[in-house]
Computed example of a mutant assay.
Amino acid sequence: MVKFEQIKGFVFDLDGVIASTSIYHAKAWHQLADELGVTWTDELGDQLKGVSRMDSLELILKAGGKENDYTQEEKVKYATKKNENYVNLLSNLTDDDILPGMKDFIEDLAAHNYLISLASASKNAPKVLEALNLDKYFKERVDPATLKHGKPDPEIYVRGAEILNLKPEECIGVEDAAAGVQSINAANETSIGIGDPEVLKAADINFNDTSEVTLENIKKAMA
């Protein structure tokens, strides 16, 4: 692991890291799974964390043994329907949905002149950041529409460093999903995993929840 003093930037996932929008994603996917006749489980919901919309749909169809039942056009239609459900649910979002400690952490990064970018697979990220009043901190965002590969491929985190004009080893990636941690590690960045340390055991640094994520605690973990 690199030294803390070498770090110049932070690359963030959004859902489950900055805000509790993952609950809205889960609700919208659950609604669609019910419509498709696929049994929803918490385990299936966990598999979708940090995964792109179309890849998530494929996982749901596979879970129900229906991966060959629909044309690509029909799959796009269902994925679009899920997104419409999700956007409707997002209308309830406010800055109260920022996860504990994360607003202070992001403000602290800005105050200490760290560069910040967003590496979310969600095409709705701009709407979410605006609703949370955090958009001013995330001027640099990876556009998921330009990506060829989803997490756990490193592409999104490589790009997250590139848009800050930093080397990967100068960045810390922040994630709550195993696929995201794999993506950070493969991009050669230092990984922070927020959540169950067993699930996120590949992370360089583990925090049980967002309230523990501070510059001081990261510095200690990298000492």
Rank of each mutant, 00 (worst) to 15 (best):
K3P: 11
F4K: 09
F4D: 10
F10Y: 12
F12V: 02
D15E: 05
G16D: 00
S20M: 08
S22L: 10
K27F: 13
K27P: 09
Q31H: 14
A33D: 02
G37M: 06
V38W: 07
T39A: 13
T39K: 12
D42Q: 15
L44P: 09
G45N: 11
G45C: 15
D46S: 15
Q47R: 11
Q47D: 12
S52P: 03
D55K: 08
L59K: 09
E67R: 00
E67C: 00
N68D: 11
N68S: 05
D69Q: 07
Q72G: 01
V76G: 01
Y78K: 07
T80F: 13
E84A: 13
E84S: 15
V87T: 08
V87K: 10
V87S: 04
L89I: 05
L90K: 07
D95A: 06
D95E: 10
L99E: 01
L99N: 03
P100F: 01
I106M: 03
I106K: 03
A110H: 15
A110G: 04
H112T: 12
N113I: 03
Y114L: 13
I116K: 08
I116P: 08
S117Y: 15
L118S: 06
S120V: 08
L134M: 09
L134K: 03
D135M: 02
Y137M: 11
A145T: 14
L147E: 09
H149W: 13
G150R: 14
P152T: 12
E155M: 12
R159G: 11
A161Q: 10
A161E: 08
L164D: 10
E169Y: 14
E170W: 13
E170M: 09
A177E: 07
G180E: 06
A187C: 06
E189F: 08
T190Q: 09
S191F: 05
I192Y: 05
G193H: 02
D196M: 07
E198S: 10
L200F: 05
L200H: 04
K201H: 12
D204C: 06
I205S: 06
F207C: 01
T210V: 00
E212A: 03
N217A: 10
I218R: 00
A221N: 03
M222N: 02
M222F: 02
A223Q: 13
A223V: 11
A223C: 11
